[in-house]
Design a binder for these strands. Structure first.
Lengths: 336, 336
DNA sequence: TTGTAAGCGTTATCAT
DNA sequence: ATGATAACGCTTACAA
């Protein structure tokens, strides 16, 4: 029942050779005679020999492991990113250590230290909403551990970054709404200090500007959940100058807007257009289905890990890269 | 800039003591004199000494790491489970290695082997839809690595299991539909060989039986995605004996049913009731919102890791545990 | 109270 | 063509 893992020494003893011979034979070193090599391979196969990664790790001071920090695991976009990372990492033979910061700076610091202790070969991370200090990341760099940031990137230190093209995604969504007849589009944003809020806001503003549509502050709301949207939208719809379009920072919020519009009897998309951001499961399940900006989280993940592996294996000291993953507008039923 | 990690030997050399003294001092062994101990601690602190986990791992043949297999990362329920696992594991000082099987048996086998190579202390897993052989898991057990299965459990080998109370969830959902007037309820199931399919089917059957409602095989369909639901439901709705209720294996499928019903002009819930399973983001965003069975994924995760850590640390050879996490019905707009 | 030495499993270096 | 030895960083009998 309980067969403990067999080691090189075991093989050596059984076959009456030295451990070094076994080691060499196992990696097909041509120094070893055909005969010996085959015998060793055969024995290893039959006894299900597996090299002890722990020993290898110690020898090489490398763990073949990549640390991944996720602000929140239960989140469509982040799941996609993680999935992209996992797939590529697995193919390349790396294991991934996953930890979530829960948007807390303190937690993030702890995770980084645990990654340091585990001697990860590299780290992929997205900042917690909380984080505004970067010493812990600098510590990684000081230990020669490369970092790639995604989505919530860090401009405070010198590393690689992968972001979604929020600006362009936002611009083209708003432009599309304008082109299909919207004249008064509101923007529901997340916390204003976040990069994504700024970039999407700029895309919105620039699209409006391009078509010479006036915007004032009352048209931009801090609202990034379904509940909030349901709370604030009815009032907005009662105004004389009610909006004929809404651009929301995520699908959740857009679904809340949609709900509110239908509740007061407005026809979507005939009387009001709505556009979200993410293209998660929600977007397919509203009625009508949501027009939204697709974020390609999986590609973000794929890019981060590709860049990281490059860094790890080539150890190139090229200057840092900013990679931008394109977004694209998925037109469904909530816009004309 | 580049300060390499300092080792016990470094400290020993600098302080003119032996490595063993340093080792002992660092773990506050009372044998070491107050004075020496403090000096060593001080030096270690100042030079940011961190024990090399890789060396510890080799020494103890334990990696302090738990391997987690997830069928699909981009999936509400599984994200919740992973999140629960991560939180508890982090608190207990374990790192988690995450890998997704993508529902493929072959991938699952590869992952298990990579976990074996990484010398994980334990494994948490849910079977791929594909998997019907368990040798790879047996191999883990043979190496004394405990396993806890969650959700898609394996009854083929002797391990711990954590499941949601599919039977009761299913039973009470169907009972509720019956009590609110449904007389002819269809069940859309996942692959019949999966435990979850069997259990939910039994819940459905027993509820129907309790109220003496006849069921025949034509009322049970293998359909577990939105697309499939949209493909098969219209035909079903055209029958003379069309259903007045649908119980679906997940929210996605339920949202497809809802879509189809609305498309042919049936009123939900007046003419047709629909109930899903999961209570993810989708359930809140359909119109009307979905009645569904809440699964408590996070609790599932928490339980798996609790049980696993018990196994690892106590190494109790107690017989295996089946833990059942309660579900509860969330009544929203798609049922009366 | 402290030091010495062996060992975890592997491989690189230097013999033979 | 093969073997002996040392080393990766740490811990722990055992010795002093």
């Amino acid at each position: 029942m309980n067969k403990p893992q067999i080691t090189i020494k075991d093989i050596a003893r059984e076959l009456g050779v030295s451990p070094s011979t076994v080691s060499r034979a196992l990696k097909d070193n041509p120094d070893i005679s055909q005969e010996t090599r085959e015998a060793i391979h055969k024995y290893a196969r039959e006894h299900n020999y597996k090299p002890n990664a722990l020993a290898l790790n110690l020898r090489t001071s490398r763990s073949n492991t990549i640390g991944v920090i996720i602000p929140q695991l239960v989140h469509h976009f982040f799941s996609c990113v993680l999935s992209g990372i996992e797939e590529t990492a697995a193919k390349a033979g790396y294991n991934i250590l996953v930890a979530q910061s829960n948007e807390k700076y303190e937690q993030e610091v702890k995770i980084v230290h645990s990654f340091l202790a585990a001697r990860v070969c590299g780290v992929i991370t997205s900042l917690a909403k909380d984080t505004s200090q970067y010493d812990h990341y600098q510590e990684l760099l000081d230990n020669n551990i490369p970092i790639v940031f995604y989505d919530r990137i860090c401009t405070g230190i010198n590393t690689e970054r992968v972001v979604v093209d929020d600006y362009a995604g936002s611009f083209s969504a708003v432009e599309y709404m304008i082109q299909t007849g919207c004249k008064r589009i509101f923007f529901y944003s997340a916390a204003p200090h976040l990069e994504i809020s700024k970039n999407r806001r700029n895309g919105y503003l620039d699209a409006m500007k391009k078509y010479k549509i006036p915007v004032n502050e009352s048209m931009i709301k801090f609202c990034d959940t379904r509940e909030q949207a349901i709370a604030i939208t009815p009032d907005i719809l009662e105004r004389d100058d009610r909006p004929d379009g809404f651009f929301a920072i995520n699908d959740e919020t857009a679904s809340g807007i949609l709900y509110s519009c239908k509740l007061v009897g407005l026809k979507v998309p005939d009387e009001v257009s709505i556009c979200g951001f993410t293209d998660g499961a929600i977007a397919q399940s509203t009625d009508p289905k949501l027009t939204t900006v697709e974020q390609h989280g999986k590609e973000v993940g794929k890019s981060t890990i590709d860049i990281l592996i490059d860094k790890i294996e080539e150890n190139t000291n090229t200057r840092s890269v900013n990679k931008i993953i394109r977004t694209n507008l998925v037109v469904r039923g909530t816009t004309k």
